[in-house]
Amino acid sequence: MTKPKIGLLERISLGIETVAGVLLALITVLIVVSAIGRYLLAWPVPDAFDLSRFLIGAAIMWGFASVGFRGSHIKVDIFAEMLPAGARRWIDSFAWAVLLAFSLLLTWKMLGRVTSAFYSGEATFDLRMPAWIFLGFIWLGVAFANIAILARLILVASGRATLEHFETVDMAGDDATEDRA
């Protein structure tokens, strides 16, 4: 793979992250609206409970794809970091291969959960919307995650990337506005 392909991966990853981020925003608004409806207007949003928990699940699974690509899972870094770069590459490749194996197993078994919900007619509590649609949407996230993890695994194994460990924190600590404004 050449550099432009890493750029492409970046863009796909950003796309997935955008979906997940928008979902998180939606759920935030949904829970606030539902709270206002419950306490102030005596009009609870129907299925707010099921909707928000299914959507949180989707946001997390789509985010799982993102984190699989970024390499920012929580892990024990101390021993890997004491090793020379060559050995670390082996360890990092092993670690991400194990993650990929887990993700593949999850994809396979969760598909069973989705089809089970499809055939059993499982539904949301109030509006009786079919549960399999939401579960299927969650499943898509873990399906994407396999590709994302594989991409990072290839980059790591070929020595073109590492497993960054504080990427997440770095951005969280980015006191950005004043610098940008």
């Binding site: 992250e17 955008t18 997940a20 981020g21 928008v22 998180l24 925003a25 946001a59 997390i60 985010g63 799982f64 993102s66 984190v67 970024r70 920012s72 899972h73 929580i74 997440t168 951005m171 969280a172 950005a176 506005t177 940008r180």
Partner: peptide, 18 residues
């Protein structure tokens, strides 16, 4: 910046959920 914050929060959350 809001979208970036959402994505950022989500990544941290995913690490915890995992």
């Amino acid at each position: 910046l809001i979208l970036e914050s959402l994505v950022e929060a989500l990544r941290t959350s995913v690490a915890i959920y995992t």
